[in-house]
Design a protein around this nucleic acid. Structure first.
Lengths: 142, 142
DNA sequence: TACCTAACTGAAAACAAGTTTCATTTATAA
DNA sequence: TTATAAATGAAACTTGTTTTCAGTTAGGTA
């Protein structure tokens, strides 16, 4: 389940963070977009609701939400974007055209991981798995 | 098979690129290190052999080698590094401590990819898979 | 309800990785 | 040897992100 704006707000409170108008605005944008948005794009949207907000605040809010595990990062080219974090281990399928993101949870990499670990002697701590392609809407164009 | 310095040099020639002392120096460093090196780190090493080389040239040479498929990029944190490219499709196991890289080729993601494609309607073009952990030598410390 | 203070904010400056520009140099084909 | 397209290095620039710092504010307390 993806967390709601209310849920996120209450987590902030619980952790002793203040709930400012700026943070509310950022949270709303993140909650209401299925895309993974880069900080700059997010900033643009947030400004519609809160024109005076600074880009720095957007960065700081995203950083905080990320640390609390409420949103997560996606890699797309050099920069990265953020989306709501569904609970638990999961991966992304990113549209390289429009940035929309689909989640999936079952990656079945445990077997591969274990074998690699034995073969190489590495102590594997995690993995990075992401599919890249074109979403339904972006397949026609370009 | 990982290509040798000679092999790489001859590919450059074939493609009409000039074989300068700087390029030779960059190629040597890449060939002689099992680590994935960030451009800046590579630059440091290259300077031992060729003190007058510029960072720009390192970037340009890496870019060229990458385009020719002779080396490949690895993600590590925000920046990226380069290692020799073994031929064909492959992935990396990266030590987050020292940056050493192990390759592996069999990722068995076709099944997963096909299922995701059906479920989401995405036309999947590629994937990003990388394991992160500690290599044998780095497991003790820290 | 007013007040207090740590937390938060925004502007500007700083930073890091990478790229572009441009005048100079050089590998290599003729 | 020479001509020239390709390559180089310094410096300036770009882009994404972080730091600094003086001023503002959320929200607990009197």
């Amino acid at each position: 389940m993806r967390p709601s704006a209310k849920k996120i707000a209450s987590v902030l409170r619980q952790k002793g963070h203040k709930l400012t108008a700026q943070r509310r605005a950022v949270i709303n944008v993140v909650v209401n977009s299925g895309e993974h948005l880069a900080p700059a794009a997010l900033y643009e949207r947030v400004r519609r609701a809160h024109p005076a907000i600074g880009l720095v605040t957007v960065y700081r809010t995203l950083e905080m939400l990320h640390e609390l595990g409420l949103i997560c990062r996606v890699h797309r080219g050099e920069k990265h974007g953020y989306t709501l974090a569904p609970s638990g281990h999961h991966h992304h399928l990113v549209c390289t055209e429009c940035g929309i993101v689909a989640d999936f949870t079952d990656c079945d990499l445990e077997v591969l991981q274990q074998r690699l670990s034995q073969q190489t002697g590495f102590k594997i701590e995690g993995h990075l798995l992401q599919f890249l392609g074109y979403c339904r809407d972006c397949q026609g164009g370009t």
